[in-house]
Write a protein that binds this DNA or RNA. Structure first.
Lengths: 188, 188
DNA sequence: ACAAGATTGTACTGATCGGTAAATGTATGT
DNA sequence: ACATACATTTACCGATCAGTACAATCTTGT
């Protein structure tokens, strides 16, 4: 009765395909090649088609971010190391900007409207988690939200810019400065 | 012998369609509806198909940015007002983040690889123009490029975030802070 | 008025799209 | 061994894709 043995293992490949081609651009032929599964197998695991595949991918991403980013920020009693850890994970996750933020991409054209609430909650939680962490770090409440917004926004922008310039040094530079801006805010 | 009367006038509509649907998502049916031109007319004006349409759109955008943003920054003898003017134009142009940056979008999936060099030059020029303007403003040369990178990157991120949260106040807030960061750097 | 050229609408191509159906294959519990 | 449930392959569906061909229409200079 081994169920779902492969559905979960197909998700990372689907994620990479969606990242590379976008939701519309990732045709079933592409997804089939990316996963090594035939069209029939994909529909066996994801009867809802591309939409269900994307939902599974988004759930997987959300799970990762909750574990590695959101919860540590929300539960931090040492804000500085929590924030440093966040930047380390983020830099590695987005491969210095070579890897796209799937959630960010979905915001940019009409193909992603069906996932708008998922995307909104993802960014809202990231901002509020970081904001809370800064508050624990004794940053004035007038600035926590603004700093958090700026950081999350800045990460998205760094991905765009790094890809545009085809230079991951840009990504690392921008993130390093954002990192130290937050640390400065805490220790000030 | 009136030639090209309508080609130029179709470009803004094409631009809006590409913004909304992306390059792949903007089918000829969509482009036809957006411009009010039949498929035959579109191919009459743009024999190269979608790719030529996108190139025309990008050339149009580049022209606008050169005139309104890049040249004023490059020729500024009053850096503070040049920068303020840039932020005004940018906020209006991107409609507080409701309007997407077409050049930024093209970086995020494989659909835009054919336009990679155009996109790269656009961002490179923006950064170097802003960087030069800061230098005129007596900002230390160690920081001009970093500040410029951060600003251009931050604008892209603000668009993503504003759309994700469906809240243009976020966009305005992030840009306002970036604006004052640059002004502070100049007058310091 | 008339001819030349620019513009448009319509119909078509072959390819690919997302999705479905059914037949076949494979594993497992009894 | 056998039945059952899951997995995969293959073939197929109608719709839509980008692009082409061409006839019909409209502009414009003379």
């Amino acid at each position: 009765m081994r169920v779902l043995t492969n559905r979960a293992s197909a998700v990372p490949a689907l994620a990479e395909a969606f990242r590379e081609h976008g939701f519309e651009g990732a045709s079933l032929a592409v997804l089939s090649k990316a996963t090594g599964l035939g069209k029939g197998s994909l529909y066996n695991f994801f009867p809802g088609g591309k939409e269900e595949m994307m939902e599974a991918v988004l759930a997987d991403i959300d799970h990762w971010f909750c574990e590695k980013i959101f919860l540590p920020l929300e539960r931090a009693n040492d804000p500085a190391t929590a924030i440093s850890s966040m930047f380390e994970y983020v830099t590695a996750y987005f491969r210095s900007g070579r890897r796209v933020c799937l959630l960010g991409c979905l915001t940019l054209n009409t193909a992603g409207v069906e996932f708008a609430v998922i995307v909104k909650e993802y960014f809202a939680r990231w901002i509020s988690a970081l904001s809370h962490c800064l508050e624990v770090g004794k940053v004035s409440r007038d600035f926590t939200r603004q700093l958090a917004e700026e950081t999350v926004s800045g990460i998205q922008g760094a991905i765009v810019l790094a890809r545009a310039l085809d230079d991951d040094a840009t990504f690392n530079r921008v993130l390093r400065r954002q990192h130290s801006a937050l640390i400065d805010a805490i220790t000030a």
